[in-house]
């Protein structure tokens, strides 16, 4: 099953490589990994999407917890949570496709954030599924560049992941 693990980790050089190294050394799978400092600059928050059986996910969380730099983590899949991913797409925007593209972006509540006579840059956020759905509406021949941030997540309700 797919799991999203949110990790608070010491914001120190090398901390990221400990997590990445753990996954490669133990043969765990990483689907995506994002990381950035938190409001407390001594901490980073990492969001890791992985998949595996219950036993494997249990080992992954235990092994992550064992890393000295890891302060705290939760498996977001265990509770109701919200996920968002950011995507930037550069597409060819010709005379014939400009209008249609604009309509599609509106339907998906995206934004066009750069315009030239031949191209658009589209910004879109949402669940990974929504971004996939949008992608499938585009003609691959028109794609110039696609960049996705990988999903991040937060649990619903009052409870939060903090120290």
């Amino acid at each position: 099953m797919r799991h999203m693990i949110a990790i608070l980790i010491e914001n120190e050089s090398g901390a990221l490589s400990r997590v990445a190294g753990l996954f490669s050394a133990r043969g765990y799978n990483i689907q995506s990994l994002t990381v950035a400092p938190t409001e407390d600059p001594s901490l980073s928050r990492m969001t890791l999407v992985t998949c595996g059986s219950e036993e494997i996910i249990e080992q992954i969380t235990k092994q992550l917890n064992k890393l000295i730099d890891v302060v705290k983590l939760i498996d977001l899949a265990e509770s109701v949570h919200i996920e968002r991913e950011l995507m930037l797409i550069k597409v060819k925007a010709t005379e014939h496709t400009r209008e249609e593209l604009k309509r599609l972006v509106d339907i998906f509540r995206g934004k066009i954030i750069d315009v030239t006579s031949t191209s658009y840059v589209i910004e879109m956020t949402g669940s990974t599924d929504k971004l996939d759905a949008f992608m499938s509406t585009l003609d691959p021949a028109h794609l110039i560049e696609v960049v996705r941030s990988g999903p991040i997540g937060i649990s619903r309700g009052e409870k939060g992941l903090h120290l």
């Binding site: 050089s13 090398g14 490589s17 400990r18 050394a25 000295i68």
Partner: peptide
């Protein structure tokens, strides 16, 4: 050294 020993130490420091 920190990179080489990372998988075989409990922790390491530079």
């Amino acid at each position: 050294m920190v990179g080489i020993t990372r998988p075989c130490v409990k922790h390491n420091f530079l």
